[in-house]
Design a protein around this nucleic acid. Structure first.
Length: 155
DNA sequence: GCCAACGTTGGC
DNA sequence: GCCAACGTTGGC
């Protein structure tokens, strides 16, 4: 099983929205690296749910891949926000996956806290700007989950 | 194929 | 709201 991290702006779609909905499709990814990561996802893979553009931003929950990559049909609809004329229904350029709610973490592991943790310094969350779907190492995953089970060291 | 212009992400 | 980072587009 592989591990991932997906960013979402809580004003647009939060972990609470996912909990309410149970599962959702992850459309609108328009970055090749992020798309390729989604294409590598397997059913059952686990996903850290990250709130971006929040104060503070951070990891708030866990989701699970329930449907592997399939064409992002929103790219075909000229009236849709996610329309991309370069994505041909015969040869789709963009894919999406479906994820399901697993749990909320006992507390948020904030980005500042991640940055202060040496073992997490190599995460793309820290090293790579503007990548909304990224791979997470098992050791990083375990560390983050363990941190969420304990009080914030910074408080 | 280079690179300037432009658009978006996302931290702060 | 600002702006750095950086991916994409398009002129040449």
């Amino acid at each position: 099983m592989n591990h991932w991290l997906m960013k979402s702006e809580p004003d647009v779609y939060s972990i609470d929205d996912l909990e309410r909905d149970g599962s959702t499709s992850w459309e609108g990814i328009r970055n090749y690296k992020a798309r390729n990561n989604m294409r590598a996802m397997k059913k059952g893979d686990r996903v850290l749910f990250y709130h971006s553009n929040a104060s503070p931003p951070g990891i708030v929950g866990i989701a699970e891949v329930v449907k592997e990559a399939y064409p992002d049909h929103f790219a075909f609809d000229p009236k849709h926000h996610y329309f991309d004329e370069k994505s041909d229904p015969e040869k789709p350029r963009w894919d999406m996956v479906d994820i399901a709610f697993v749990e909320k973490l006992p507390r948020m592991v904030s980005l500042p806290e991640v940055k202060l943790t040496p073992e997490l310094g190599a995460m793309e969350l820290v090293t790579t700007a503007r990548l909304s779907v990224q791979a997470v190492k098992k050791s990083e995953w375990d560390r983050i989950v363990a941190m969420a089970a304990e009080p914030d060291a910074g408080e």
